[in-house]
Amino acid sequence: MSASPKISRRAFATGLAFLGFGRGASLAQNFAGLGGDASGFASVMPGKSFEFPRDHGPHPDYRIEWWYLTANLRDHAGDALGIQWTLFRQAIQPGPQREGWANQHVWMGHAAVTRADAHRCGETFARGGVGQAGVDADPFHAWIDSWRMRGLDRVSAMNVAPLEVNASSAEFSYVLRLEADKALVLQGDAGHSVKSERGQASYYYSQPHFTAAGTVTIDGRSADVIGQAWMDREWSSQPLAPDQTGWDWFSLHLETGEKLMLYRLRQTRGEPYLTGNWIGSDGRSAALSPRTADMIPTATTEVAGRRMPTGWRIIIQDRGMTIDTVPLNPASWMGTRFSYWEGPVSFTGTHRGVGYLEMTGY
Score class of each variant (00 low, 15 high):
196 S>F: 02
204 Y>T: 05
27 L>Y: 15
261 M>G: 09
1 M>F: 10
9 R>V: 09
181 D>G: 11
165 V>N: 06
296 I>C: 07
161 A>V: 10
347 F>N: 10
193 S>P: 05
91 A>P: 07
66 W>Q: 11
316 I>F: 03
110 H>Q: 04
4 S>Y: 07
100 G>H: 10
260 L>I: 14
136 D>G: 07
87 L>F: 08
249 W>A: 00
221 R>A: 15
151 G>S: 09
259 K>E: 01
251 S>L: 00
211 T>E: 01
334 M>N: 13
302 E>H: 06
318 D>G: 11
330 P>V: 12
99 E>A: 10
307 R>N: 15
199 G>S: 03
318 D>V: 11
261 M>N: 09
59 H>S: 02
5 P>D: 11
327 P>H: 02
36 G>A: 15
283 G>C: 00
40 G>L: 02
228 Q>R: 13
259 K>A: 01
335 G>W: 05
274 L>V: 08
44 V>Q: 04
21 F>G: 04
53 P>Y: 08
38 A>G: 06
35 G>W: 01
354 V>C: 03
97 Q>I: 11
90 Q>C: 12
26 S>Y: 03
281 S>W: 01
216 V>P: 04
325 T>D: 02
224 D>H: 13
334 M>Q: 14
121 C>V: 14
50 F>D: 12
189 D>M: 07
249 W>G: 01
307 R>P: 07
127 R>N: 11
14 T>D: 14
322 T>R: 00
189 D>L: 08
345 V>A: 04
258 E>N: 12
262 L>A: 06
260 L>F: 00
272 P>W: 13
212 A>K: 01
65 E>L: 11
129 G>F: 00
183 A>K: 12
56 H>R: 05
274 L>Y: 00
149 M>G: 11
117 D>G: 07
225 V>P: 09
18 F>M: 09
229 A>T: 05
241 A>S: 11
314 I>M: 03
198 R>W: 00
261 M>H: 03
346 S>K: 02
222 S>D: 02
318 D>C: 08
330 P>I: 03
288 L>T: 03
46 P>D: 01
231 M>W: 01
227 G>I: 00
